[in-house]
Amino acid sequence: MAKGLSFGQYVHKDSLIHSLDCRLKIIYTVILSILVFAIKDISKILLFTICIFIIIILTKIDFKSYIKNLRAFYSLFVFILLMYLIFSRNNLNQGLIAIWRFWILITISTILTFSTTISSLIIGIDKLSRPLKVFGFKPRNIALLISMAIRFVPVMFIKMERTKEAMLSRLANFRRLKSIKSLIFVLLEKMLKSASNLSDALQSRLYNENVESQKVLKLKLYDYLSLAIVIFLVIVIY
């Protein structure tokens, strides 16, 4: 099984976080993502991290799944650290804090995708972005793009692994630029083929960017409670 298979995939659990209103979850993700880079004080970042851990526990999803999801970003963490090591060795602690912030950012978005089904995400984005329709913005297109990214990123990981294995079996050397170039071109070709098939499938299943979701969303008591908690958290931390 490919390493990236769990990337951003919905995990079905009967949890409080899962049952929150999808619009609120999207709004919280945006607010908390901004907040993580806005806070300067380490003690506040620590408090923020504790809150994130509490949310993780509330999702009832195995912590290992979150760790597994981070694998794809290890290279980014190493890159940030290397940059600090090479160019700003004196501020290495800032590099570590930057990685910490990125970890929180990724975890916030992971909580959203792990606890929200794609259709809920689409409905949420659709409802939230309706005011933008006056500017010619098509919410369903954006929602579908996000949905397809979540669906096809793991598929691309699998395709990459398979292509890599096929090339390795024929003695490709990935230390050489030529082999990496071949891998990229083969992958691009496969992605374009998949995109063409997908385009046919969308047409075949009558995709219409103007269709609006018929689902009626109503905020429940715990949605209001969550809103109060998030506002309180923002005030305390910021």
Partner: peptide, 22 residues
């Protein structure tokens, strides 16, 4: 595989129905 648009089975089955305006 390329025909399945959503990650969750029941959501993918519902995709075409949404397009029909149900």
């Amino acid at each position: 595989e390329d025909q399945i648009i959503h990650s969750i089975v029941e959501e993918d089955i519902a995709f075409g129905l949404e397009n029909l305006g149900l």
